[in-house]
């Protein structure tokens, strides 16, 4: 399948699903992946979760939920280096609506944490919805057995391990080494230690981390995507308005869909191949039930 076919399939699939018999919706099993486009980041996030069968599918009453956005850089939301704050806020809201007892939003940032938390808009947005937004705390770092193929053990922030439910909320961005940095690379923000050494085998590291953290849900922010100068960007001309949120139980599939936004085929991304081989998910979207909507 070449790129053109892939995109065609995506588009075709979208049309089929959109015009599909909505009467059967009740009886239908929940989809593996939902993709919603629209003008409002909050509305498409809410709709994506509804399309996936509702947050109650993932969160039980009394759960402690950890939401892991990308807050890595000292950048404002319009530069698309960090997850859209509206997306994060909406997820916090829906988590509480689904019965979560406690929702935490955190990330081990690259630039100064105070600046990243504030200027990304995420701290304020998540707090306004009732989430806790703590800074990472080195005392909660623990060397853990990752049992990865490359990373045998690494220092992990226990907050991400101890939560009942883990939701990965990355943003889709260009990256010079791994080509794209989306959900799997987002886990570098859940660990400590000498993260800069992971670049030497970045694809293996990403997959090992994704296999270790195994989120219940991936909600991919592709409202604005960063098409060059990643992963920080810096000019609004570096971004493209995609106005899409992808929610999926399959992190590999979510990443595959996002690659399409950059006109990159999944087989061009080494880490996706490794991830599929490891059984983390599916790059062949035809094997999944996908729900597409527009708001």
């Amino acid at each position: 399948m070449d790129r053109r076919d892939f995109i065609k399939n995506l588009a075709f699939g979208g049309v089929v699903l959109r015009c599909g018999p909505s009467l059967l919706a009740q009886a239908k099993p929940n989809p593996d992946l939902a993709m919603v486009t629209g003008e409002s980041p909050a509305a498409i996030t809410r709709e994506a979760l509804a399309a996936l069968g509702g947050m109650k599918r993932f969160i039980a009453k009394g759960d402690k939920v950890m939401i892991k956005p990308n807050i890595g850089w000292d950048r404002t939301p319009e530069l698309a280096a960090t997850t859209n704050p509206e997306v994060v806020k909406t997820l916090v809201e829906i988590s509480f609506e689904a019965g979560a007892k406690e929702v935490t939003v955190m990330d081990n940032t690259i630039n100064q944490a105070q600046r990243c938390y504030a200027r990304s808009g995420i701290a304020e947005a998540a707090k306004s919805a009732g989430a806790k937004v703590p800074f990472v705390n080195e005392y909660r770092l623990k060397k853990m057995a990752l049992k990865g193929e490359w990373l045998k053990e690494w220092e992990v922030f226990t907050d991400f391990v101890e939560a009942d439910k883990l939701i990965n909320v990355p943003i889709a961005k260009h990256h010079s080494l791994s080509r794209l940095t989306i959900g799997m690379k987002n886990w570098l923000g859940a660990i400590g230690g000498a993260r800069n050494q992971l670049h030497q085998k970045i694809d293996e590291a990403m997959v090992d981390l994704a296999a270790f953290f195994k989120p219940q849900l991936t909600v991919l922010d592709a409202y604005r995507i960063l098409t060059r100068n990643g992963p920080q960007g810096g000019r609004t001309s570096d971004i493209k308005l995609q106005k899409t949120v992808v929610a999926s139980i399959d992190p590999v599939a979510a990443e595959t869909v996002a690659a399409g936004f950059f006109e990159i085929r999944p087989e061009e991304l080494a880490y996706l191949g490794i991830a599929q081989k490891r059984g983390l998910g599916q790059t062949n979207l035809e094997k999944l039930t996908i729900e597409k909507r527009a708001v």
């Binding site: 010079s176 080494l177 670049h199 030497q200 970045i202 920080q232 810096g234």
Partner: peptide, 22 residues
């Protein structure tokens, strides 16, 4: 430098460079 001297991937510096274009 790791790529120059050791022939392994790195370019951590490029990732962190804050200007646009880098």
């Amino acid at each position: 430098c790791i790529p120059y001297a050791l022939g392994r991937p790195c370019i951590v510096c490029e990732e962190h460079c804050p200007t646009s274009p880098k």
